[in-house]
Design a protein around this nucleic acid. Structure first.
Length: 876
RNA sequence: GGGUGUUUAGCUCAGUUGGUUUAGAGCGCUACCUUGACAGGGUAGAGGUCAUGGGUUCGAAUCCCUUAACACCCACCA
């Protein structure tokens, strides 16, 4: 059959993906085999595939496919996350475009819009993963708001509440004025921003003096309820206990003293706005200060804003500053760098805000999670450096704010029946809630209509932290066969940016609900950056279109490109050139196959060269197989691929195929043909996890295969029984061949012209390789000589000297120069070796093996120098 | 402010407990090759005082300290 000389991935990819799907190779059900399980880090349901997804899903697919080939029952559970805040923001924006405000909708109406959106766009990213070749068990596709998963979340909430780990508290929390919800500590990103430090003077109530305070937020003056100085600050000692007038409002507030104040900073006097700053809040509590909340939820000023009411906080900042300046309260302004908390999702500047929220106590959950990683190593993080980060975070962790003022998500199962703050119950169902409420209130007349369910939804991560358990229904039905079989999962592959958000919390949940770790190995990939080291982001527009890449280079090419650049634990600088390299590699493999299948097979004896080549390659294959296993164990996927790349490109294509290649038009013997097909098939198995499409394509071209002979369910190779001696001496033969090629190159001798090769050999000369040397170096014959023939170019391999007689074509001056250069190098080398050997302390201290080695180097060098000198003498 | 990590060829990175290394790979680069699988190819080659300064050692890219640059994480300093 006539195959094209360029591998065209497009048709092959859709063909084989469909074939795999139709035959159910991705499906997994519990059986007698050992399971190998990965749960996907569920991408946002509204998301589209970006480079980060491409990378970590490629890695997961490599691991899953390899496990499948190794005979494990491989199960990769796909799914999506409802991403409460991100999705809600998108839906709100979309509704706005249609002229609908969220505030005009009921919860039910809004949710029906949100579900419609999810149905429409929710599957996109999963379809894209299929294009990449991901072999997920699609029948298991889960969504964090599926009934089963949602019920799990509610059950866990109630359970944790009953255990006393979840509580409702009035706290200062991070408020996102754009999304109109609170956020957890982890969702706040601090950014360095340059702003102004305003120095504002407050008159004493009795008019006797003025005090200047420094603030970055003059608008919060409207909520000031005290000034505060350090108790031992002599500058202000006389003012403690006096009252000052707050500018604009003319409210009288006290001057108090607290050690929190740093006398060195600003003026050493701090204004206290307990409602709008976490520290001020603490000081306010300590000193019993009044709380004045000056903002609406969207961070515009409320009625406390006086003349500024209705203004946005940043607008108000300028307006207040202007007012202060005009009325003589503003002493000066200074440039000031400070860290501003922003919302991870909306980028809005966070406003500290007091409110009633639900919290999860972390102290007891943290303990087993810390031990599992730091002490018992039940869970291993790759790369290891993240263990420290993990430890630090766990040790400094604060309670987790899990309530969100959103609708898209699991609604908190708390029901209020009265006006007091404690008039609520927590229950999985309305009926239970009613019963509990009647009991708690002592009012048997309570009726379902008297219960008001908490309006808030739960943090997205409060559902995804159960993911490895809930996808197997392990929360609602902990004894079911699936969870017992698949849990704990094996590997988790994700980005380090969600180590705290997700990974750590899954570990908490695993120990709390399964009494066991959720996974054994966590492989944290690097961030994908562009060639200039910038993060890939939509706003920079430097993120390539994932699907376009697949179209251009083929999924296999993209996978290889991505993996080649992703050395373990480092950020990866993505460059399309690497996808091209992957594509070239695919083509190389394709053409290697094209060559073999073009041969006519005949019942003729096997040439010695072919026998040697096959035997040697088996050894090389064994070595690479071992290297690959080792790399995989350490999650060095990139290195594993590179080892394979070299095996296939150099050893298989460049050497083996050249060695066995019959003369043009001549047939190949059957033995060699069958061996090389066998070797090719083994290569394909190793390559399959990385390049699933191409390998299946060739695999099926080689011969028709039945359903259970497909490559995807093939068998991982075992090492060949082979003569490693041949493998080990091949390197020398290759050097001889390279030596001859080099001489050809230097003297411009075409391939067609056969040369002869004379060798002044010692024992180490690879004599068994002579037939191969003859063939690949285009040498007529190899003869053994005792002295250098007249007019030869020469090179050395170990301590054998090789000559290519080139009467009349040799420039003795050139040849001499070459020899002299080599002599100089060898002498330099000898000096360094002898320096060591003449050092008594080296001889005394170094281990025998090292000494022997140095002595060998010395004698080799001496011998070489002698031979070189002879040649030089001869020529000059 | 605290912590972690990085710094090896033009680029991206290996270099495993210090000794088979006057340091390796891939890509790129240079020269030559219309070589019957592949120019998305082949052959050959150039290219590094292992960030800096010091120390330990018979021996350091590798261990210790200094300095510098970069990256990331954590932290309520107005």
């Amino acid at each position: 059959m006539e195959l094209p000389s360029k591998y065209a991935p497009q048709q092959a990819e859709s063909k084989w993906y469909q074939y795999w799907m139709e035959n159910g190779y991705f499906r997994s059900t519990p059986d007698h085999r050992t399971p190998y399980t990965i749960v996907i880090p569920p991408p946002n349901v509204t998301g589209v595939l970006h480079m980060g997804h491409m990378l970590n899903n490629t890695i997961q697919d490599v691991l899953i496919r390899k496990a499948r080939l190794q005979g494990f029952n491989a199960c990769w559970v796909p799914g999506t996350d409802h991403a409460s805040i991100a999705t809600e923001a998108k839906v709100v924006a979309q509704l706005k475009e249609q002229g609908i405000e969220k505030s005009d909708l009921s919860r039910e109406e809004f949710l029906s819009h949100a579900w419609a959106w999810k149905e429409k766009y929710g599957g996109v990213i999963l379809e894209q993963l299929k294009k990449l070749g991901c072999s997920c068990d699609w029948d298991r596709t889960a969504f964090t708001m599926d009934p089963l998963l949602s019920d799990s979340v509610i059950k866990v909430f109630v359970d944790l509440y009953n255990k006393g780990l979840i509580y409702r508290g009035y706290r200062m929390v991070h408020w996102d004025p754009e999304a109109l919800t609170t956020l957890s500590d982890e969702e706040v990103i601090y950014e360095e921003r340059s702003g102004l430090l305003y120095f504002v003077s407050y008159p004493l109530a009795d008019g006797s003096d003025r005090i200047t305070v420094a603030t970055t937020r003059p608008e919060t003056i409207l909520g000031d309820t005290a000034l505060c100085v350090h108790p031992e600050d002599p500058r202000y000692a006389h003012l403690i206990g006096q009252e000052v007038l707050v500018p604009i409002t003319n409210r009288k507030v006290p001057v108090i003293a607290d050690e929190y104040v740093d006398p060195e900073f600003g003026t050493g006097c701090l204004k206290i706005t307990p409602a709008h700053d976490p520290n001020d809040y603490l000081i306010g509590q300590k000193h019993g200060l009044e709380l004045i909340d000056i903002f609406h939820p969207n961070a515009t000023l409320n009625s406390y804003g006086g003349p500024f009411e209705g203004m946005d906080r940043f607008e108000a900042r300028k307006a207040v500053a202007k007012w202060l300046e005009e009325h003589g309260f503003l002493v000066k302004k200074e440039n000031h760098q400070n860290k501003v908390g922003t919302s991870e999702r909306t980028k809005a500047v966070i406003e500290p805000r007091l409110s009633d929220q639900w919290f999860l106590r972390m102290d007891t959950l943290v303990k087993p999670a810390l031990e599992a990683v730091m002490d018992t190593q039940e869970i291993k993080l790759f790369p290891k450096k993240f263990e420290n980060t993990y430890k630090h975070w766990l040790e400094g962790i604060r309670d987790w704010n899990i309530s969100r003022q959103l609708w898209w998500g699991q609604q908190i199962p708390a029901y209020y029946y009265g006006d007091a703050k404690t008039d609520y119950v927590v229950a999985e169902s309305l009926e239970t809630a009613l019963a509990l409420a009647r009991e708690k209130s002592g009012n048997a007349q309570l009726d379902a209509s008297d219960l008001r369910r908490d309006e808030d939804a739960l943090d997205t991560w409060f559902s995804s932290w159960l993911w490895p358990i809930s996808v197997f229904n392990g929360i609602l039905d902990p004894e079911n066969p699936e969870i017992k079989y698949y849990y704990p999962t094996n590997d988790l592959v994700t980005g380090p940016d969600i180590l705290f958000f997700w990974v750590a919390r899954m570990i908490f949940a695993g120990y709390e609900y399964m009494g066991e770790k959720p996974f054994t190995n966590v492989y944290l990939t690097g961030l994908v950056r562009d060639a200039q080291r910038r993060k890939m982001s939509k706003s920079l527009g430097n993120s390539p279109d994932a699907l376009k890449l697949i179209e251009d280079y083929g999924a296999d090419g993209v996978r290889v490109g991505l993996l080649l650049s992703a050395s373990a634990g480092n950020d990866l600088l993505f460059d399309e050139a690497l996808c091209a390299q992957g594509q070239h590699f695919a083509n190389k493999i394709w053409n290697g196959f094209r060559l073999v299948q073009s041969w006519e097979v005949a019942e003729i004896p096997q040439p010695e060269t072919a026998q040697l080549g096959i035997e040697w390659y088996r050894g090389a294959f064994n070595q690479t197989l071992a290297v690959i296993e080792d790399h995989f164990e350490k999650y060095r996927i990139s290195d594993a691929l590179m080892a394979l790349y070299k095996l296939v490109w150099d050893d298989y294509s460049a050497w083996l195929l050249e060695i066995i290649k019959p003369a043009y038009g001549a047939p190949i013997d059957k033995t060699t043909y069958e061996s090389v097909i066998g070797l090719l098939e083994q290569n394909l198995v190793l390559l399959h996890p990385f390049m699933p499409f191409l390998t299946e394509e060739i695999w099926q071209y080689i011969q028709p295969r039945s359903k259970d002979q497909a490559l995807i369910v093939g068998q991982w190779p075992k090492p060949y029984a082979t003569d490693m001696e041949l493998t080990n001496t091949f390197g020398l033969a290759a050097e001889v061949i390279a030596g001859v090629r080099n001489i050809r190159q230097e003297h411009g001798i075409p391939q067609k012209e056969l040369l002869s090769l004379c060798v002044l050999a010692d024992d180490q000369f690879p004599k068994s390789w002579v037939p191969v040397i003859t063939k690949l170096a285009h040498v007529e014959e190899v003869t053994w000589v005792e002295a250098a023939p007249e007019g030869s170019a020469s090179f050395r391999v170990m301590s054998s000297e090789c000559f290519v007689p080139l009467l009349g074509q040799i420039d003795p001056v050139e040849e001499l120069k070459k020899l002299n250069d080599e002599l100089a190098y060898t002498q330099g080398f000898l000096v360094s070796v002898e320096k060591k050997l003449s050092n008594e302390r080296f001889v005394q201290n170094a281990p025998e093996s090292v000494l022997a080695l140095e002595r060998k180097k010395q004698s080799d060098a001496l011998e070489k120098i002698e031979m070189l000198s002879q040649r030089i003498a001869q020529l000059s």
